[in-house]
Design a binder for these strands. Structure first.
Lengths: 221, 221
DNA sequence: GGTGAACCGTACCGTACGGTACACCTGGGT
DNA sequence: ACCCAGGTGTACCGTACGGTACGGTTCACC
């Protein structure tokens, strides 16, 4: 205990940029790549080691078991997901031009969520949801549910201000989100993540989603 | 050739109820069960054999390779998927009470597609879409795309008859479908297929989806 | 120049699993 | 009475892969 607090003994689990943390990052990045490509069972630890430019020993030193490595990686990716749209949300709650702001939010949604990096993780989590049930739920809560909750509260405020009429804000939030992203997301789920959409296409879907949404939820008058 | 047409030599690849076909069915049913539970890689041929009450020999006699068995099974499940709603569609195209008929269609959609048997196959296909790309596309074409195409043609007719106003019928079909089923389907994708929804809940989602859809696509006047 | 932490490379172990070989059984057709 | 296609059961092979052991190397710090 008395000799534990030397300068480099502090490297705990959370990030940093010490040599250890760097190695850990390299491993996690490589592992994510391999897991995304081959799935949990298909991914070979030897391959992860090779891709990371690290030795298998080091991986097992850091993560103990393959399962553990997998969970760490997915949880690591989870942090930012729901956070991205927080800014757009704040703007939405305070706006006076609901249509324009909603359109901006929709476009940001559809562009961000159709990024391969996002879709491939989604695919992976769905694929392994029965092997890692808690991970599936964690993803759903940190992703879709968080976004829906935030949107819902926005809609509630806009309804109070007389700009929308959402009797069930959470349902409205679901309608909005899925209207915006269902088309590209579902296509990619089945047809592989190497499909790319034209920006105009994405924008058009976003705009039409907003049109439908507002037709149903705009305040009368 | 001359001795090929005895009574039991006719049992080809397609179904029948000869002893051979029965064995084949038993294997396919058991295999589906195991694949759904454990995924492609996780499923063990020994286990499939045990579940089918058949010998591994017989399986390999019938299907040659594990990959083959897997593909056969999924393709087998594909046939009926898009076909189910054909009746509802026909009714929809001819109806005069769009709202009522649409509501009926929506309810049938949401109840049918939230059946575990449907959702688990969907999960499986998504999970293995990178290992079996052609299978993913086949599923998408036989399932969602076929339904969208049929719906789209209905909407087109209803638009011609002045009952709807769908400038882009295919887009409208997408909006309709995803409005109806996105909520339960996405929840199950992440949170496991043992989640069950209350019928009233499903009906409510269907009705609200129709409400939103009609707000955007009902013909004016 | 000594010490120890982090890491590398390789070899290795145990086991699991896809696929095959082989010997045997069974029941309908002739 | 015999045949034989379809099926069973078991044993087996080869290989792949998770995980470990071990010896060697680098590098920071004292």
């Amino acid at each position: 205990m008395s000799r534990a607090d030397t300068s480099h003994a502090v490297t705990g689990v959370q990030g940093g940029d010490g040599a250890v943390a760097q190695t850990r990052r390299r491993i996690m990045d490589a592992a994510l790549e391999v897991f995304l490509r081959d799935g949990y069972v298909g991914a070979k630890t030897d391959e992860i080691a090779a891709a990371a430019g690290a030795s298998k020993q080091t991986i097992y030193k850091h993560f103990g078991r393959k399962e553990n490595l997998f969970e760490q990686i997915v949880l690591d990716r989870l942090g930012g997901v729901g956070q991205i749209f927080q800014d757009a949300m704040r703007e939405l709650a305070d706006t006076s031009d609901v249509e324009a702001t909603l359109r901006a939010v929709a476009r940001e949604f559809v562009h961000t969520l159709t990024q391969p990096s996002s879709l491939r993780v989604r695919r992976l989590v769905i694929a392994e949801a029965s092997r890692f049930p808690s991970l599936g739920r964690a993803y759903f809560e940190a992703g879709p549910e968080r976004v829906h909750a935030a949107l819902s509260s926005c809609f509630e405020q806009l309804t109070d201000r007389g700009l929308l009429r959402t009797a069930e804000p959470l349902l409205a939030a679901n309608h909005f989100t899925w209207l915006v992203i269902s088309i590209p997301v579902n296509k990619v789920m089945f047809c592989g993540d190497d499909i790319h959409f034209r920006p105009e296409e994405l924008d058009h879907w976003a705009d039409e989603a907003v049109r439908v949404f507002l037709a149903a939820y705009r305040a009368p008058g």
